[in-house]
Design a protein around this nucleic acid. Structure first.
Lengths: 146, 146
DNA sequence: TCTTTGTGTAACTATAATGGTTACATCGAG
DNA sequence: CTCGATGTAACCATTATAGTTACACAAAGA
């Protein structure tokens, strides 16, 4: 891998707009703020819908939060967009040689550390709510406007 | 990304062998334990050399630790194999619209949380030394042998 | 010195994820 | 019924990964 997909940052961007924006959040409108294609936005909104974070007005259009902004954490968003396969951040090489003492036992030992590292990261994401993030964002916007 | 490359787990495997094995660690020998191609092993050893973690006996062959096993952490190994681009785990979507209050400010706000999450993960990796890992591994090997 | 063994790399391959794009069926409000 | 928006399918180009063959070169031992 090189990096965790920008689907995550785009998803956060989308939800921030859904929370803050006064104009209706169509995929066209969001795409202009994110600076990408409306289809990319719709695909990510599809993930967010599946996770129950938003609902979309069919036909007429527009994306709206389905939960309070302080009930949505960055971890919820991270999980919703499935940026890591099967929820596992680290990929362990497959089928090390079971006839070698190292090959036979390294996986279980190293996996423990990998999972701890992953959990530590996810725990940090879980500590930040959309509400907090948007509050920080609004402050920045207000101060830079002056 | 889907997952962090198996280069990391293979590198840990290689260093464990270098520490524990009585036979000389040629790329052939290591490849049999890892269950892959010797060239894959040599490439990763190249990363470990660049990071100063091992040295290789040229011509005659064999990889050896260049530091004490309790001086090498999983974070050192993780960094050595460059599994994440430019050291940044998260990819932020490029050029959000600066004319939108959200687009203009989301990056700096979200990046803070991303970096905290990344640091939390790396901190966990830094807490585990090769020595500890190999000790756990040896215990497992001894108990499963009986 | 010559042979053998292993390293260091280049070059090429297949596979998969990502991000982008066009196209179109369908939904629902006015 | 029309218009605007969604939900998807079907592509495409780019890139990372992992694997493979090939070969020049290093050094140890006969």
């Amino acid at each position: 891998m090189k990096k965790i997909s920008s689907r995550f940052s785009i998803a956060v961007h989308i939800l921030s707009l859904a929370y803050l924006s006064t104009s209706p959040c169509t995929s066209e409108f969001i795409a202009r703020s994110v600076n990408t294609n409306p289809v990319i936005i719709r695909r990510i909104i599809g993930n967010l819908k599946k996770a129950g974070l938003v609902h979309v007005k069919a036909g007429t259009g527009g994306t709206y939060l389905r939960k309070d902004a302080d009930e949505i954490t960055l971890l919820d968003i991270y999980r919703a967009v499935e940026v890591v396969a099967k929820g596992e951040l680290f990929h362990f090489h497959e089928h090390p040689n079971p006839d070698c003492p190292v090959g036979a036992n390294i996986e279980s030992v190293l996996r423990t550390s990998m999972l701890e590292a992953q959990s530590a990261m996810e725990h940090k994401l879980a500590q930040v709510t959309l509400k907090q993030l948007v509050t920080d964002l609004s402050e920045k916007a207000a101060s830079s406007k002056s």
